[in-house]
Amino acid sequence: MKHAVALFLLLMAVWLLNSGHYTVLITSFGVVSCLLVVWLARRMGIVDEEGVPIHLLPRLPMYLPWIAKEVVKANLDVSRRILGLGRLNISPRLFEAPTTQRTDLGRVLYANSITLTPGTVSIRVHGASITVHAIADEVADDLLGGEMDRRVTRLEGGGR
């Protein structure tokens, strides 16, 4: 129920921001369509901790600035590699990155964070490890250092 209410509020916020018409009639259409979507989502069985992960919200403000900083750093690094004169300074590599997340949601967040950072792309997730393609050895070693893994585990509520 908590998740259904959260989903309704989110949909309503999106509807109000996009609509721009705030008469009673139009707004009531919005309320009805949001309720319809919540009902459909409940029928599909996706209104739960995984589909509407509101329990992550309190810890998200700690994670977002860090991942943004990492993405900017990785962007500058990959840009330098692309613009390097003469031969490209790249050494692509495939490797397995271990994960320590307890839930599928945590692993999805980790894999998406890896892909969001230029220089590393998660290719497949199987069991507890992720196959990653990295643009250079240094980038790969950086990821294998496990900082991002620890941070995502803390985001989903585990770890230290």
Partner: peptide, 25 residues
Amino acid sequence: IGGIGLLRLPDFYTRIHAAGITDTL
């Protein structure tokens, strides 16, 4: 830079990283 990388990098998997630059920063 992302567009240049898309042309310059040697194979599909490395080009994803170049597209990532455009998509993120």
